[in-house]
Amino acid sequence: MDWFPLLLSAQVATLATAINLLLGIAVGWLLARRSFPIRDLVGALVTIPLVLPPTVLGYYLLVALGRTSPIGQALEALGVPLVFTWRGAVVAAAVSSLPLMIQSCRAAFEGVDPELEQVARTLGRSEWEVFWTITLPLAWRGILAGMILSFARALGDFGATLMVAGNIPGRTQTLAIAVYDAVQANDPTRAGILVALLSIFGILTLVAAQQLGRRLAA
């Protein structure tokens, strides 16, 4: 049994979740606490990966980050090409799971009573201090739930990852792609093990997310 896909998937999903944590907190906070003219547009744009077919999403990323694009050429020059590398898989997983993270963060921030922040300001604390000492600690459970969902989604991404990173065994073949590969290669045992792994993990993360959500509500 080749464990590479499992390790790669864990690495990709972890990094994607770390990136999404930062993006999700920043964008989620903006959407929850600031009103600006294009807020609805931004809200729609960060949700679109959820409704687009993953291949379409992957195609966009491929075009945006590929060798012919300015971004792709810049990355190439820096020696960190994304397309058809495991880094591309991280980007694909991050983008496809970002909506879950942003939505969770937004809901978590919206759940913090703005009056608490206002009182904290009258007590002399700066915006930054208020965020770190009041907003973030009170939103933390919701953000954590978002991280779990986002991690699970990143771990399971297939379409976008396949488009951006390809299916290179030992280099970019993640767990989800390895399942497809095993079925194509007519190896039901391997496919079965991989599917079981993904399913068990998916169920566990959703149970954890529900428990967090319930404690959040209480």
């Binding site: 009573d113 009056e115 608490l116 206002q118 009182v119 300001r121 009258t122 002399g124 604390r125 700066s126």
Partner: peptide, 15 residues
């Protein structure tokens, strides 16, 4: 800004 006003504010519901 509220930070520099030196007001003691107790909103309804205490916050």
């Amino acid at each position: 800004p509220p930070q520099a006003r030196r007001v003691g504010y107790v909103p309804q519901g205490y916050a």
